[in-house]
Structure formats: structure tokens, C-alpha cells
Design a protein around this nucleic acid. Structure first.
Lengths: 167, 167
DNA sequence: TTATACTTTCAAAAACAAATGAAACTTATT
DNA sequence: AATAAGTTTCATTTGTTTTTGAAAGTATAA
């Protein structure tokens, strides 16, 4: 296999992984492309490599920047904007985890909290409802917490200790 | 808030969480409904509660069964099938994690493994490509491993130890 | 201030994913 | 073996999300 094939395969795979996890294909593909690109790329470069339109490139680049996982760069004396990916993978994971927690987990936790508060529940159904939603709340908030700890202190002794325990 | 409202809110929220994580809305909603239902439900019940068609219900029920997170039950003397949800939440998480690993992470790992094997890489681009894909492989396989350990041995001393460390 | 190089926006189109519903199928009952 | 009760399938429709592309917007340089 040669580089261009391998590169393409990686980009496609990353795109479909993205899709399966609720991230648009193009967004994941642009990210993949920037990860394996040793040089910063312009919007034109990205459009050409992935065969996508200007608008599509622009929107997804902005989205990736909002997620904090790619960056705009300026070359001295040039008008054009260039883009590069976060190149520390632990840091990448940390940002993704943080963002998904903020956008998806936290709001769900608020709802679980709220609905599990249900008052005057006499019926069996209501009792069961409270119990289950409270359990989900407990579980999800613990998982969220754990993820936060793991990703926040990637280099701390706690993570190293865990890693050792898990060997 | 009364039960029916709370229930509805929970089902909607769970549905949209599903969507954001790449699971179809109806599939997540059926699951939510079964979780908070103290009694087993028939397909008719589910169709009525969620206002969905027979086909939709049938397909998503099968899907949930394939994931191993809901079960078919038979009432003695009745032809009709009933459904119930896995009611241990740790077990639920374990099954979801295992399934997503099998369907999405493992195949991605295989590709990363393969493309990072790229030979005769002289150019800077090829060297960089190998390095990055190898890093991603390392990271993803470690994360996958960790998740497996955590979910597999929910009750083991290792998990308890980690939990204590994380307090 | 005008031309130029580049980026962003957004309405419309295309692509994709999910849902419907009727027909086919299965299994049990008379 | 015919009827009934229930379930599954799948071609078609509906709905949602993504993408396009042209127009509007911005910033720089001449």
C-alpha cells in the first residue's frame, strides 16, 4: 500500500467512525486530514483533498475550531488562513470528552435530576419511575465524573496509578 | 409535574441523547419507555405510547434485542410477546460498551493498525502519517482496554480501588 | 476608494436515515 | 386445513441532516 491509499483509507474510516458517534462525516474527515498533515493546510487545500465545497469546508472548520480541536494559523505576509490539528492526542481526547459532557451529558443529567424529583408518587408506576431515573442519574453522573478526572489529570499520579492497576 | 409529563420528558430526552450518540431516536425511546415501565409491555403498548408504526416498533425492538439490552418475555397461555429492559444499570452500560467496542472501535483499530504499518516511507509526509496513526492506535486501544476492564469487573476490587482513588 | 483575495452565510438541492403500512410470513387454535 | 393472532419484511414515503454554490461580507493593498 502506498501513502495516498493509506491516507485515504484512514480519512474514510475516521469519517465513518464520526458518523457512528453522531459527528458529521465531513467534520471528522477534515479533522483526520489535518491530523496526518505535516504542514498546515488552507481551505483550498482541504476542499481539493476531500472534494468538498467551500461552504461545507468553512462551516465544518468553524465547528472544529469551536470544539477546540483545530486551530487557525496565519503565515506572515499572507492573507490566507491556514489550519492545523491539535497534535497531542491526550489533549484531543480531553477536549472532546469535555465538550460532549457539556453539550450532551450535563443537560441530560439536569433532566434526570428534575424528573426523578417527582412528588406525591403513590402508584407503583410512579415509584418505579423515580427509582429508575434516580439510578440513571447516579450512574451517569458517576461516569461523567470519572471521565472528567481521567481526562483532566492525564499526567497525574492518579492516572498513572490506575494505569498500573489495569496492566 | 405529574408522572405522565415527567415520563414524557424523560423519553424525549433519552431519545435525543441517543441521536447525538448515533443511535436512532425511536430505538432510544423504546428503551427509555421499557426502563421506566414496571410491567412488561407488548408491541401494541409500545406503539400506542410512542405513536409509532408497527414496522418501526418491530425493527427497533429487534435491534435492542440484538444489543442485548431488552428481552422478550412470554406470559403463560398467551401468544403475544412482551418486552422488558435490562434493569441492572451497570449491566446495561457493560453491554452497550461491549457492543460499541465490537462494532465501531475494533474495526477502526484494525484499520489504524494496517495503515500505520506503511512501508518504505521516505518522505516527511509518510513518516508523519505513520507516527500519527500509530499514536491514534495506541491511544484508542488503551481506551478500549480500559473501558473493557472497568465495565467487565464492575464489582471487582480493581474497580472499587479506582473508585476510592477518584473520590 | 476601488480592486482584489479571501471567508462566511444561507436558501435551495441532494443525500441519507428513519418511519410507514400493507403484504407476507409464522405459529397456534378449532 | 382453515382461521385467527400475532410478527416481520421491505418498497415507498417522509423527515432530517448535510452539502452546495452563489451572493454578501471583510480585510488588505494599491
Amino acid at each position: 500500500m502506498e501513502l495516498s491509499q493509506a491516507k485515504n483509507k484512514f480519512i474514510q474510516t475516521w469519517g465513518s467512525l464520526g458518523t457512528q458517534w453522531g459527528i458529521s462525516k465531513t467534520m471528522a474527515q477534515i479533522h483526520a486530514l489535518l491530523i496526518v498533515s505535516p504542514e498546515v493546510l488552507s481551505m483550498e487545500d482541504i476542499m481539493a483533498e476531500l472534494h468538498i465545497s467551500r461552504g461545507n469546508a468553512s462551516m465544518n472548520l468553524r465547528n472544529l475550531i469551536d470544539w477546540g480541536i483545530i486551530f487557525k494559523e496565519y503565515k506572515p505576509g499572507e492573507r490566507r488562513e491556514y489550519f492545523s490539528a491539535e497534535d497531542n492526542i491526550d489533549e484531543l481526547a480531553r477536549k472532546i470528552a469535555k465538550e460532549r459532557s457539556k453539550r450532551e451529558i450535563k443537560p441530560t443529567l439536569r433532566v434526570l435530576q428534575e424528573v426523578s424529583q417527582l412528588e406525591h408518587s403513590q402508584t407503583e408506576e410512579a415509584v418505579h419511575f423515580k427509582k429508575k431515573t434516580a439510578e440513571l442519574y447516579e450512574f451517569l453522573s458517576r461516569a461523567d465524573n470519572m471521565l472528567e478526572k481521567i481526562t483532566d489529570y492525564k499526567e497525574s499520579w492518579i492516572t498513572k496509578t490506575i494505569m498500573k492497576l489495569m496492566k
